[in-house]
Design a protein around this nucleic acid. Sequence first.
DNA 1: CACAAAACCGGCAGAGATGCCGTTTTTATG
DNA 2: CATAAAAACGGCATCTCTGCCGGTTTTGTG
Lengths: 223, 223
Amino acid sequence: MKATAIQDRMLSAMHPRHNAEPPEKWQQRKSARTRQRILDAGIDCLVEAGYAGLTTAAVATGCEISRGAMHHHFATRLDLVAAVIDHLFYRRMSLFLDDYFASLGTRGEEEIIETATEAHWRSVHTHEYAAYLQLAVAARSDEELAALFAPAEKRYDKVWISEMIEAFPQWREQWDAMKLASDFANAAHIGMLLNEGVLGKGERMAKVRALVTQTVAQLYGRQ
Amino acid sequence: MKATAIQDRMLSAMHPRHNAEPPEKWQQRKSARTRQRILDAGIDCLVEAGYAGLTTAAVATGCEISRGAMHHHFATRLDLVAAVIDHLFYRRMSLFLDDYFASLGTRGEEEIIETATEAHWRSVHTHEYAAYLQLAVAARSDEELAALFAPAEKRYDKVWISEMIEAFPQWREQWDAMKLASDFANAAHIGMLLNEGVLGKGERMAKVRALVTQTVAQLYGRQ
DNA sequence: CACAAAACCGGCAGAGATGCCGTTTTTATG
DNA sequence: CATAAAAACGGCATCTCTGCCGGTTTTGTG
């Protein structure tokens, strides 16, 4: 299906080895598997204990390897952080695309904007997004982290925009509106997530959500 | 002027001793002054090094007192954190009100919504808001902190809503729109702040800002 | 002025994280 | 099977933060 092609292209742009064939030797596969487990554990650490909790010790414990093995894959904490960041953006995009394309099939073409907006709102509630939030805020007060995080974030944005344009060539006249709608929904949904403690998950939040969705729809000239 | 009355009422609701007269004895005044310096240094620490950087040692260094004196005022780190949270919300509201009422005078009554929205956008860029953001995100992965932060946040929200209503009794028919607009602008502006790394400070951000302001205005039936 | 109380000082041990390194186990190669 | 290379292991010194505590200086009181 076409969705897969778009997904592959976007994910390849996010991660060079996205659709590379797995290595032949068992040793290399094992190493890659361990590396993945480390990165997944890193995301867990971020969600459960924040950026300060992303320690080499905690990650090693989290995926049940020794600190020695940890050090074999990532010599310093910052090496680990850099790898976690890449892994995180890749997974974030991957998960969103899976959910979006899956939900596309269940609704009509005329509801595509609502579908996309709702998928984005769901994506904000994922494990991966929680980890992203921790990094984004930590990067505001940690130059070392910011030096790694800012470029990754910009790359994610670039891939997002360029592929959004390629995915909807028929909406050429609305590309500007599309970009603005994306920026707007993105900002609004982060803010709503952060204010969930005050807004709750009931009617008060629903009203804000409805307003955001409606504003997005208006940008596309709908009502 | 009337502004001062509203400000006093709101700030009193945020802080019991808002307009209490300063203590007579020099010792108590000195103690209170030191306490203030500690809390201000705590906010600085949050901004510069995040919640993990809000350490007793760093704060003591920041306001040039000994760790002993620090311990005299706040026995444990958590005591300090609790006090910083209260201080922070108080200052956040205080700064916003100062800015808002000051800018009210410079513009016409018919631009009151734009004035308020712009004041809020400015408030998001303050030192205090940066510290708030660090706490809000840290609280998502730290139960001890959340136990202190969540109630403070809810109290701030409660004061905000009730006083917003008292401040604009003539808009009785629009209270619901007012609350929604407040929630919406709040969420949007946080999100925009967090995405500043991607949106930048130029035209791209300006477009989102304009969209938010326009959406708020529409809620009040304007446009 | 004497005495008490408050405010402030700096050192100590414990806990946890970091980076480093020598060693052992597992897998690949000739 | 022998040997090399990769992967995983766990201990060590160091650093920082924490909580605690005995001692000192400054301010208040009779």
